[in-house]
Amino acid sequence: MTEPTTLITGGAGFVGCNLAHRLLAQGRRVRVLDNLSRPGVEQNLQWLRQQHGKLLEFVLADVRDAAAVNQAVNGAQQVFHFAAQVAVTTSLENPREDFEVNALGTFNVLEAARARPVAPAVFLTSTNKVYGGLEDLELSVQGQRYLPVDAGVAASGIGEQRPLDFHSPYGCSKGTADQYVVDYARSYGMTTLVFRMSCIYGPRQFGTEDQGWVAHFILRALRGERITLYGDGMQVRDVLYVDDLVDAFLLAEQNAQRLKGRAFNMGGGPRNAISLQDLLDRIEQLHGQRPAIAHDAWRTGDQRYYVSDTSSFQRETGWQPKVGATEGIGLLFDWLAARHAQRGAVAAANATAAVAAGAH
């Protein structure tokens, strides 16, 4: 009899490799399916292999390949489906690819799970973008942040009762995936659960301008590069440290039968809400100098305010985020700064070696 396995699609990515590491450290077998298309993820895969050896199984494949997905799901007791196209900007440039990865890829995972004699539980990471631009939310400016005029929303954040309003091809494709996962619990009795995620950050994140903005801002600052703010920089998000997210995943797994068919908003909540300007202030504290800034126009679907109301998941599981934004940003800064220094040292050594070789 084969040992129980957890499948993580997109498992070499930032969130996936952090979950894989936690499971593997517990002695659990993990199968990672990833197409390794995102910059930096091969480093995450190498790290997992170095840390955990044969407990880790890797499948080089794409979720758009239904046959490969079906084979990868075989023998899995649960599936954490993280593989996705993750950027609004990319979805606007190539909506067909966005749809195929996010909507069709999720459908492939669900159908592969449904085809098993005993369907594994399926956990999907969705997005706050399923709630659209939140244009009806009346906001005021307080300091360098937008805040809701409604005191209840300001205190608690955006709850799951908020109507869905898919905005941008990315919002549509992730929203489609979100609703398929919810419905497979209703239509087929499968154990499925959705996390509508806000901004996750932490070690092993290689942020870009389009996704992973906390890491992106820190990386630009460390390299002495200019950061572009789209809009005025007062837009607010709740940030959640990745270890706290992994805790939430494990609680969801433990309570999956009771919670199946539900979608939960997941983020740091009002206590961990920061604006882009707030992050620049924190980077200045950590780095000793303020990053250079450029401004550009607002981007499609960019919510001026989004903070998760996580009270539903907290009531159901007792989960609470443990790492505050100030502490967590410091931890990520230290991790990225150490990598930056190490790479600088390697580059300097290589340059010295090249000069020496040229002297001969």
Rank of each mutant, 00 (worst) to 15 (best):
R38T: 13
A347Y: 00
A84I: 08
H295G: 03
G189M: 10
R343D: 12
Q85D: 02
P117M: 04
R29N: 13
P203S: 06
Y180P: 00
G224S: 02
V194D: 06
V15C: 05
M190V: 08
A354M: 08
D334S: 11
E284C: 14
L36R: 14
V194P: 07
K129R: 13
G171Q: 03
R114D: 05
D278E: 02
V323T: 15
R186F: 02
Q26W: 07
A263M: 08
E327V: 12
G261C: 07
N70G: 15
G233V: 09
R339Y: 01
D238Y: 09
A292G: 07
M1N: 00
S91R: 01
L19V: 15
A337C: 07
V307G: 06
P4R: 01
D244H: 10
T300G: 00
E57T: 14
Q320N: 10
Y146G: 06
R29Q: 13
A155C: 04
L286T: 10
G40D: 05
Q303M: 12
I329Q: 11
G344V: 01
Q235N: 15
A12K: 08
G157D: 08
A76N: 03
T5K: 03
V59K: 09
R145G: 01
L33W: 07
N44Y: 02
V41W: 01
M1G: 05
A337H: 12
G269N: 03
T127W: 04
G11R: 02
A87S: 11
T2F: 00
E100G: 04
V101F: 05
Y180E: 10
P120H: 11
N74Y: 07
L286P: 11
G189W: 14
A354F: 00
V122I: 10
G224H: 09
L259F: 13
Q277C: 08
R96T: 13
R290S: 13
G224W: 09
M197K: 06
V181P: 01
L286E: 08
I293M: 06
N35Q: 13
Y184V: 04
A87E: 02
A185T: 11
G13Q: 06
D302T: 09
V41G: 02
N94L: 02
R339V: 00
V194K: 04
T5G: 00
A119D: 11
D281R: 10
N70I: 00
Q144N: 14
